[in-house]
Design a protein around this nucleic acid. Structure first.
Lengths: 220, 220
DNA sequence: ATTGCAGCGTGACAACTGTCCAAATTTTAC
DNA sequence: GTAAAATTTGGACAGTTGTCACGCTGCAAT
């Protein structure tokens, strides 16, 4: 308890942190471990129905531990959101870097898109849930905005590479490109979790049809 | 109590409904009245923090009444969602019908867009919240899908009219056009409620810049 | 061997939740 | 005007929630 309170309130014990390296890392490691367990539960139940006891039950600890590592519920969920971010923002970078033609990039991107939708739909349900929660809960807005920004960057890397491979330019702003793909993903995610088995190929068709329309000939 | 149970369970008393017209209308009217009160509270607090007692407190009734007119919480909120739909899906139809030029339509549409964002941001926060809830709560999916469809239709009416006024065709599918505008709206809604005073004109700029790119010359 | 403390479990707390019910009140029908 | 029905009230219920305080355990330093 002393450690938790001091670590969060007193900036003076940073000195002690540097001396006692090992316990600090252990402390942070457990925070992340608990944040991951929280993500699992949140992704299954959604924000509205997730309680601290439920989170603890899906971990290997009891509910009391949560208040040892986190000041309150918002602190835990904020930490979870930040941890969630790292897993998302580089998903398509490998395909983007390796592709040597438009077709190759388009195919790889669509494949990755489908894999994402099929393998971890719950995590993305949670993302859209948390983004909506940020509309009401001020404490989430900073983290959500940061994730949104890095996702927008990621989409932008894909579409600019796509245009580049065709010797063209992107005909959209980064914000519009992200809004477009994100909106479509959200739409077919809902259909997918609702049991529509055709949702994944339908998303692929729509995006495949769309990609060529997002570019135009370079001006120069 | 007898009326509520019978009305929802026994399909045989439709006959009695036709004879006693007036009480039926009163019953339905009160359902809508309570659904509207629920919308107010939901829009303020968000789904996760809205309780039946809070809803009742923001109405002129007590919490007991809610279970007289609705079987349970999901029934009330489903009713609220359906009632919410009616207010949304025709928002831009007047502008679409009256405009006689591209510029007029674009200007009127952007104006209405800004007015929507400024005057009733909370209602739209609620919409995005409920759509995210539908990812976890099966009971909401039908209503949410229906609203999504009518919003997509509404956007499609605007962009086809816009293309038509320029003697062109829309270069997007209806789904893509809706995803694009909806995604942008959601993005700037978050900024707006977060206190960014430049969010409204920024949305207008982005959409103004975007509209001409959504059309191309008709083939024939 | 003893002390001290971080880590963790357990139980308790007040507040809140959805749901239900019996009584009180209002409205309607005759 | 009176009886019956419809509506509304307020409280009770069992369960859940976030939060917190106390006690136990194992380990490290003295």
């Amino acid at each position: 308890m002393a450690q938790q309170k001091a670590r969060l309130a007193d900036p003076e014990d940073r000195r002690q942190d540097r001396i006692q390296r090992i316990p600090v890392d252990k402390y942070q490691a457990r925070r992340i471990e608990l944040a991951e367990a929280a993500l699992e539960t949140l992704a299954t139940l959604g924000y509205a129905r997730t309680s601290l006891r439920e989170i603890a039950q899906n971990s290997e600890f009891t509910h009391g531990v949560l208040h040892y590592y986190f000041t309150d519920k918002l602190d835990l969920i904020s930490c979870s959101i930040r941890h969630f971010k790292a897993k998302c923002a580089t998903r398509y970078d490998e395909v983007t870097a390796q592709s040597r033609s438009r077709e190759e990039l388009a195919h790889g991107f669509l494949e990755k898109l489908a894999e994402t939708l099929r393998k971890e739909p719950q995590m993305h349900c949670l993302w859209y849930d948390l983004r909506a929660q940020a509309l009401f809960e001020e404490a989430f807005r900073g983290d959500v905005a940061e994730i949104d920004r890095s996702l927008e960057d990621m989409v932008w890397r894909v579409v600019t590479r796509y245009a580049e491979l065709g010797g063209e330019q992107v005909a959209l702003t980064p914000g519009a490109a992200y809004a477009l793909l994100d909106g479509l993903f959200q739409k077919y995610l809902l259909r997918h979790v609702a049991g529509d088995t055709g949702a994944v190929p339908a998303l692929q068709d729509e995006v495949r049809q769309l990609l060529p329309m997002c570019t135009h000939k370079a001006k120069r």
